[in-house]
Simulated scan of single mutants.
Amino acid sequence: MEGDIGEQGRCTTCTYAEDFSNYWTAVMYFRHENGSYKRVPQYANAQLGYSGQDDRSINGGMTIYYTQKDFDTNGDQHITAFQPGFRMTVGSPTTTTLAEAQAYPGYAGLRYTCLETILTRGSETPEFPVKPCAAGIMAIHHFPNCWDGKNLDSPNHQDHMYSTVKGGFRDAGACPASHPVRMPQIAYETMWNTTGFADMWPKNGSQPFVWSFMDGKGYGTHADYVFGWKGDSLQRAMNDTCMFSNCGSPGMQGILETQSVADMNKCAVQSTVTEDTEGWLDELPGYGK
Results as ranks from 00 to 15, higher is better:
residue 158 Q to A: 14
residue 134 A to W: 02
residue 230 K to Y: 11
residue 142 H to I: 04
residue 216 G to I: 01
residue 125 T to K: 05
residue 133 C to D: 03
residue 222 H to S: 13
residue 163 S to M: 09
residue 177 A to V: 05
residue 183 M to D: 00
residue 185 Q to P: 05
residue 148 D to R: 03
residue 195 T to N: 14
residue 152 L to R: 08
residue 123 S to W: 06
residue 187 A to R: 10
residue 189 E to M: 10
residue 130 V to P: 11
residue 155 P to L: 09
residue 190 T to N: 07
residue 231 G to C: 01
residue 214 M to N: 15
residue 182 R to P: 02
residue 178 S to H: 02
residue 207 Q to N: 08
residue 198 A to P: 00
residue 153 D to N: 10
residue 144 P to G: 00
residue 173 G to T: 05
residue 165 V to D: 14
residue 181 V to R: 05
residue 210 V to T: 14
residue 156 N to P: 01
residue 159 D to H: 06
residue 230 K to I: 10
residue 210 V to H: 06
residue 201 W to A: 09
residue 151 N to F: 08
residue 182 R to G: 07
residue 225 Y to T: 10
residue 206 S to A: 14
residue 213 F to S: 12
residue 179 H to C: 08
residue 120 T to A: 08
residue 209 F to Y: 15
residue 202 P to D: 11
residue 137 I to K: 06
residue 207 Q to K: 08
residue 233 S to Y: 03
residue 113 T to D: 09
residue 218 G to A: 04
residue 194 T to K: 01
residue 219 Y to K: 00
residue 184 P to Q: 00
residue 151 N to Y: 13
residue 222 H to V: 08
residue 127 E to S: 13
residue 184 P to S: 09
residue 232 D to P: 00
residue 240 D to V: 07
residue 193 N to E: 08
residue 147 W to R: 11
residue 157 H to G: 03
residue 120 T to W: 09
residue 161 M to W: 12
residue 187 A to D: 06
residue 138 M to W: 03
residue 137 I to S: 02
residue 169 F to K: 09
residue 153 D to E: 15
residue 171 D to L: 13
residue 172 A to S: 15
residue 155 P to Q: 03
residue 157 H to Y: 13
residue 130 V to C: 15
residue 219 Y to D: 04
residue 188 Y to W: 01
residue 177 A to C: 02
residue 168 G to N: 11
residue 118 I to S: 15
residue 126 P to T: 01
residue 216 G to N: 11
residue 152 L to P: 01
residue 203 K to Y: 05
residue 161 M to V: 07
residue 194 T to A: 03
residue 224 D to R: 13
residue 188 Y to V: 05
residue 239 N to R: 09
residue 147 W to F: 02
residue 126 P to N: 06
residue 151 N to K: 00
residue 132 P to M: 09
residue 157 H to K: 14
residue 133 C to T: 02
residue 189 E to V: 02
residue 227 F to C: 09
residue 147 W to A: 05
residue 216 G to M: 08
